[in-house]
Amino acid sequence: MPGQLLYLGLGNPVLCDDRVGHEVASALHRRATPGSAELELASVGGLELLHLLEGFRRVVIVDAFEPGFLPPGEVAELDLEELTARPSALSPHTASLKHCLELGRLCGLPMPEEVRVFVVGVVETRRFGERCTPEVEAAIPAAVDAIAAALAP
């Protein structure tokens, strides 16, 4: 049975900086008191997220942010309410997170009370590679610190 808190790292671990969400979520999980949180690393989006979120009271999501919108390695928190509720015209696999939560709640699934979404600025997410670019990799410890500070009560 899922627990209270989930660190959810999103991204593709073989697509250069797209893996940064995995790196940062794993580091946050290592810092947590043993047994107090779970870790999930996934390369999915849209409705596939529904079952990952289900049953947790709090979820902390970390993902790469599209190149060009944040300096490499810089962290920002997304306002869930401002993420669009409108699903993509293209594919069910790219439904927005907010839409996904709304659907889960509507259908009576135990959706988290609190979802916080952190993004990390990246450089390269279209080329295959098993490591982040050097500038993003160097910024990971600071990104972890920044998110931990934002989560501190």
């Binding site: 697509l15 993902d63 942010f65 993420l83 669009t84 993509s88 927005s96």
Partner: peptide
């Protein structure tokens, strides 16, 4: 199915 291998937020591919 287009750029399904990337999942950078905001998590949808606009058109």
């Amino acid at each position: 199915c287009f750029s399904c291998a990337t999942h950078s937020l905001p998590g949808k591919m606009p058109l």
